[in-house]
């Protein structure tokens, strides 16, 4: 069995990504991206566009590099000393790894929601208000109140917490915490939201709420989501990208990928033969 998997993956040198990597109206375009941890190459020559106001799902087996790739999009990998990135990553035509691009500004424009809900050990209000406060987005206390309330509303959490905004964010349930993290990200009004398996630690009901939320959010934001669940990718995304061993195997419309994949590896993965 192991031998078969090996022959499926290692033996095959992937030269080109199958499918259409070009979007009609790209918000971000990545070309020939390589990522190295010291000498180990984690991402191999990946090119892909994120279409404006669409949900792009990155799927693939564990360790395929999809999270690493996502974290390159707002330079979260900067904090890792041994991580080196090559290639061109453009946000609205601007190189995000250019010397003049300040990572602080970039991360305000490209927000991120993490796998494990990680609210600050502060009140619900302070959690959401933190981003606007550090960036000076609110002119007055009333402004800030409004930002907090609308962000919580957009994240679908306001009704549940409106009476206890001053209680601690860590006291919420897992699903509520994740929506709080989404509200916190929205409060900075980014252009793009990156989500790294946002529902993997949640139960099915909380997951359904988050998925519904993502569907609504794409009206205003461009979203890239890493997920382990193929059903989830099928439900919420318009474009799906399949990663394998650090390479981008196939990109296409979600319908196409799940009904009629062009690459053998993609088909093997979505039919559950490995992964």
């Amino acid at each position: 069995m192991t031998i078969k998997t090996k022959s499926l993956t290692d033996g095959m040198e992937i030269e080109h990504t199958v499918g259409n990597v070009f979007a009609d109206d790209p918000k971000m375009s990545m070309r020939n991206v390589d990522v190295f941890y010291n000498d180990k190459q984690a991402i191999k020559n990946v090119s892909i566009d994120l279409a404006r106001n669409q949900v792009t799902a990155l799927i693939g087996p564990s360790g395929c590099g999809k999270s690493t790739f996502l974290r390159c999009l707002n330079r979260m990998n900067d904090t890792i000393d041994i991580c080196k990135i090559k290639g061109s990553l453009l946000l609205d035509g601007e190189d995000i790894y250019h010397k003049k691009m300040d990572p602080v500004l970039l991360r305000a424009r490209v927000g991120m929601v993490f796998q494990k809900p990680n609210p600050f050990p502060k009140s619900i209000y302070d959690n959401v208000a933190y981003g606007p406060r550090i960036h000076g987005l609110a002119a007055s206390k009333d402004d800030l109140d409004e930002i907090v309330v609308t962000s919580l509303q957009k994240a679908g959490l306001y009704k549940e917490v409106k009476d206890r905004l001053s209680s601690s964010g860590t006291g919420l349930s897992g699903g509520q915490q994740q929506r709080l993290c989404i509200a916190r990200t929205i409060a900075v009004s980014p252009e793009i939201i990156l989500m790294d398996e946002p529902a993997s630690a949640l139960d099915p009901i909380a997951t359904a709420i988050i998925e519904e939320l993502i569907d609504e959010l794409k009206e205003k934001y461009t979203i890239a989501i890493v997920t382990h669940s193929m059903q989830q990718a099928a439900r919420i995304s318009q474009t799906t990208a399949y990663f394998h061993m650090g390479s981008l195997i196939e990109v296409g419309s979600t319908d196409h990928i799940f009904t009629n994949p062009s690459h053998q590896l993609t088909e093997n993965y979505i039919t559950g033969r490995f992964g």
Partner: peptide, 26 residues
């Protein structure tokens, strides 16, 4: 926990803000 640092960095906090406003109090 590193997740707190990541949360703050992800929101666009500078290293100084992450250190003084999140790491130090915790």
């Amino acid at each position: 926990p590193n997740s707190i640092r990541e949360a703050a960095i992800g929101l666009g906090a500078s290293d100084m803000q992450v250190t003084l406003e999140h790491v130090l109090p915790m």
